[in-house]
Every structure is written in C-alpha cells, then in structure tokens.
Design a binder for these strands. Structure first.
Length: 407
RNA sequence: GGGUCGGUGCCCGAGUGGUUAAUGGGGGCGGACUGUAAAUCCGCUGGCUAUGCCUACGCUAGUUCGAAUCUAGCCCGGCCCA
C-alpha cells in the first residue's frame, strides 16, 4: 500500500466531506502552498489530530475527523493523535457562549483512558509507523513562565478578539477570562512539539490551527497545513452534534440503539451524514427517503459492529416498530436479580435507566409512552409479585428505547 | 479599590409578603398523524418504590403567623470610575 503514494492523483479521499484546506493554492508548484504537490512528491506526512478528553464518550460528530485521519493512514501517512489531557483542564473556548468548566486531573485521566478503546474501530492501530499517541501534558506541564511569555508575546489582543466567541461574549457583557486566551496558543504549541505537517479539525478550529502555523513559524518549523471538515449536524438536524445537546450517537452504543437513531436522521442533513460518515458512492444514494435512512443506518452500524450484527439490528428495529418484540436477539438486557420484588413498574423504569427518575417514569406511564411486550401500560401503580412474571418480556419506552428483561 | 445594576427551575424570562413546585416562551420527552421524517395538533416537563413525604428562586443569618419577594453580611458577575 505504501507504493500507492506515488500516484495519489485522485484525491477524492482527501476532499470527501467538503474539506477546506489551507493554505490552498491549486496553481502553485510550491509544495508548501499546495498539499497536492506535497503528496505528488510522495511525502510522508505527520498528520496531527488533537482531542481533549472532556467527556467519557466519543460520538459520530467526532468520528468524521478520525475517519479522515484514517484515510491519511491508509495512504501511508502517520497519524499523530494528541490526547489533550492538559488542554482539557484549560477548556477550549471555541464555539462556547460561556466559560467552560475546568476539569480536574482525575476526571481528565479517567476520560482519556476510555478514548483509545472507542477509537479502535476507526483507526489503524496495528500497522507499524502509522500511529503515534501523545499526551500534551508531556510537554505543556514543563513550560516555564519565560516560555509562556514567549507564547503570549506572539499574539495581540486584537488578534485574540478577532476569534469568534471572544468578542461576542465580551460585547454581550459575558465574562471572558484571561486563561482562555492561552488555549489556542497551547494547542498551537502542540503542533510545534510533534512537528506536524498537517492538522485536522472542524471548521470552527480554523483559528486554532492557524495559531499552530504561526507558532511553528516562530519556532523555525515548516508551518502545517490545516484541513477543516464541516461540523456534523446532530440528530435534530439543526444544531451541531454534541453530547450536551443530547443529539448524538456515541461510538460505543449498542447496535440496535445506534441503528434506531440513525434510521430517522432528518432529510435535510442525511446527505451530509453519507458524505462524512460513510464511503458510500454519493451518486448512488437510494432515491426513496426511507430507504436512504435505512441504508445509512446499516452502513454506519456496520463500521462499528460488523455486517452481521448490523443486519440483525436492522431486522430487530423493523420488527419492533411493528410491535413485534420476538426477534430481539441483540436488545440491551436488564437483569432482574438486582431489584426487589414485589416490583412496581415505574420503579423498574427508573432502576433500568430507561427513565432518569421515578417521577419521570410515572409521567411516562401516564402519558402512554410505556409498553410491555407491545401492550401499552398506563397504570402507574402496576406491580409484579415475582420476577418470573417478567422474564423475557420487552419493556419499551417511546419509539426507540427497548430493554429485554432477563433473570 | 469606589459607584451602580444584577444573580429565579435544562435555557431565556415573569413574579416583588400570603391557597399552589412558582405566569410565559424555547428546548426536551411522550401521544396522534406520517415515511419511526418534516409540518401540525394534544399532553408532560423538581425528587422520593408515593393516596403522602421531602427539596427548591446565589449563600448564610434575621424580621414575620407566613418570604423567591423585606433586612444584614457574604459569594459571584455586568457596566462606569480609579
């Protein structure tokens, strides 16, 4: 595969998803201004991607950029993954209308530990030389005040205020703390530390990636290329996919939940989902909108769980929609051994995590949202004397939350 | 440091002594409809194994039969001045 570097002419893999590359001067022969020239020369690039472990879950919105990183890997380049264990404590102010809560060291470490596992289906971990993983605390914690001053002295207040977010917040009368100014500089310094040739990010990262170029130049390195991918809209079809908005699909979710969420992606954004989340030929998308959703869901679930499991999830989802919970092989399960009998149904809804509180569970029952084996239950005080009455029954909340009860 | 305005439920935002988890909007969840979509209509939107008991309007004390609403101190923000 490494030989393919000599003829990377169809650069579809590079541009799929509407990547914006900068600097981008297509007519230029200068390999520092034109990444295609660089690739034609067979350069082996160090492709940086930083991710701050601010949460415990990675979702599809993050995955687009990892897919791009994988594409670079498959072309023979080196993925340089930076776990922002230090920057996570500062908090990226990008796109935030308010200050980010600062995480503790313990939280950050716990989050970081789960990240690599979640990325396993996405990246090439095995081919030698294709992946480096760094924690940016390695170099950032050892910066002394003199070095920090050097970083700060590379930018002006005007440049900082030009960054989206800062000036809005300031003019809206919201606080902007000084330590937030350090974030872009630290992220940029990461590029210096790993000698990045390319850095990947979402379009909202343009400022930060540009700072990386400035700092590399300051430290007498070749400035990196920036490659920006559009932000993936969330399941609501409007706002960007994010955990805090709840409009996300996490990489670690079970196949059926993943499928159920993806098969109802709004029409207005489904083409973007195809482009950013799959390798499906974009000129061959199913015409029927319902088919288009199903095919997408199947394609994405396959990436994370394999074709067989994905097909089973699709079959289960279709059956469950029609109220038939029989082919429920891969439903998430809930063991009844952990709860006490006699058992009230609303308590079960709470205990199983289907509802967040027992009060909410009662409301859902009253609102007609709960079904047991396809039968709607509205009796708030329904109680079961023994676990045997519930074995192998399926509890359903709304249209897409299912749970199989097991001993 | 001084002056001034402000801190209400997921968010915004009413309320300025009195049956009440506290108007309204957004968002979210659910129901009907549908393509399991959108649009539309309707319901719900503090907690608790619950015919009741808790906790809530920045924090802590206080005034009062009774406070989110009054008083004091403290914490945190905006703006103006230094």
């Amino acid at each position: 595969m490494s030989n393919s570097l000599r003829a990377p002419e169809p650069l579809d893999w590079l541009y799929r998803g509407g990547s914006e590359i900068f600097p981008d001067q297509p007519e230029s022969d200068d390999p520092h201004q034109n990444i295609r020239q660089r690739l034609r020369q067979g350069a082996k690039l160090r492709v940086k991607l930083g991710i701050d472990p601010t949460g415990s879950q990675i979702h599809l919105g993050h995955s687009t950029i990892f897919r791009k990183l994988r594409a670079f890997q498959d072309q023979g380049h080196t993925a340089v993954l930076i776990i922002g264990d230090f920057t996570a404590q500062v908090g990226d102010p990008t796109g935030k209308s308010e200050v980010r809560r600062q995480l503790t060291v313990t939280e950050v470490n716990q989050n970081a530990a789960t990240y690599l596992e979640q990325l396993r289906p996405l990246l090439d971990f095995d081919t030698p030389g294709r992946l480096e993983v760094h924690y940016n605390s390695t170099w950032l914690t050892s910066l002394d005040l003199g070095q920090i001053l050097e970083l700060l002295a590379t930018m002006t207040l005007g440049q900082m205020l030009a960054k989206e977010g800062f000036s809005e917040r300031h003019h809206q009368g919201n606080p902007v703390y000084l330590h937030e100014f350090l974030y872009p500089l630290l992220q940029g310094y990461d590029s210096v530390a790993v000698k990045a040739d390319v850095e990947l990010g979402g379009t909202d990262q343009k400022f930060n990636l540009a700072v990386g170029r400035d700092l590399q130049r300051h430290f007498h390195q070749e400035p990196q290329f920036g490659l920006l991918l559009p932000i993936l809209p969330g399941l609501d079809g409007v706002q960007k996919m994010s955990k805090s908005l709840g409009n996300f699909v996490a990489l670690g979710e079970d196949p059926l939940t993943m499928y159920s969420k993806l098969e109802k992606v709004p029409d207005q954004v489904i083409n973007q989902y195809y482009e950013l989340l799959t390798d499906y030929p974009l000129d061959q998308l199913p015409v029927d909108p319902r088919e288009r959703q199903k095919t997408l869901a199947l394609a994405v679930v396959t990436q994370y769980h394999g074709a067989a499991v994905a097909a089973a999830a699709q079959a289960s989802a279709m059956a469950l929609i029609q109220g038939d919970p029989s082919p429920t092989d891969n439903l998430p399960e809930f063991g009844l051994s952990g709860v006490h009998f006699p058992l009230k149904l609303f308590y079960l809804l709470r205990a199983s995590g289907l509802c967040q509180s027992s009060s909410e569970a009662r409301r859902q029952l009253q609102g007609g949202a709960v079904k047991l084996d396809g039968q709607r239950v509205t009796d708030v005080d329904l109680e079961f004397a023994t676990p045997e009455q519930l074995y192998h029954k399926v509890v359903q909340l709304g249209k897409s939350h299912f749970l199989k009860l097991v001993p």
